[in-house]
Amino acid sequence: MIEFRSVGFSYPNGVRALSAINATIQKGEFVFIAGPTGSGKSTALKMIYRELKPTFGEIWVNGLNVGTIPPKRIPYLRRTLGVVFEDFKLLHGRTVFQNVAYALEVVGTDRHEIERQVGRALQLVALGHKADQNVEHLSGGEQQRTSIARAIVNGSNLLIADEPTGHLDAETGWEIMQIFEQINKEGATVVVATHNIDWIERLQKRVIFIYEGETIEKYIKGANRLGLSNSSVLSP
């Protein structure tokens, strides 16, 4: 489903964020991409949905080399996956329904079908009763759930979340992680970038570590303690 083949990325100012990452994520998997802040987790995810283009190497998503697709095709790639952001990235001044429906409006979905699919997605994240509320009036957890509903509403089988609990308290964060687990159980591939070792310990999923400097010790110890023998440790 997702394959990183010797992928590296450097910013235009020459700062290297990632070098020679190799990793494979299978269909239906739930995978954490872990590592300390600044280790390149978000960079790796941004390359999956082509917000960033790899400086070298190849990234294959659903059989498509995303590094080579022309800019005009990027929207079509993004329609095949859902992305959840740390800062929610909701359209302000709009309701929960309108935010979730936007992902379907861009593909010209019929109005009745939009109502049906948005209703289903909101039920899954337990927000059906807040469909008509303006997103600015929601709590952080509810806003993130709206963001998850938007990511899954188009029926895509790949969900990418970049530090989805970074702005939330521990309890709300755990609720969000449980929603991801539920989505994964229903068949979708879920990739979550996090620097929070608690989620990794509690959910017991495969972890791809991206580390920098001495912080690797903490993650290797964590992985060993958890018995995550199939997890990868990637050097930036």
């Binding site: 005009k72 952001f85 990235k89 909701l90 992902a103 861009v106 593909v107």
Partner: peptide, 16 residues
């Protein structure tokens, strides 16, 4: 501009 960025992230084409 943030709104434009979000629209593109959820798969809206430039013309949309």
């Amino acid at each position: 501009k943030k709104e434009i960025e979000i629209m593109q992230l959820v798969g809206a084409t430039s013309s949309f």
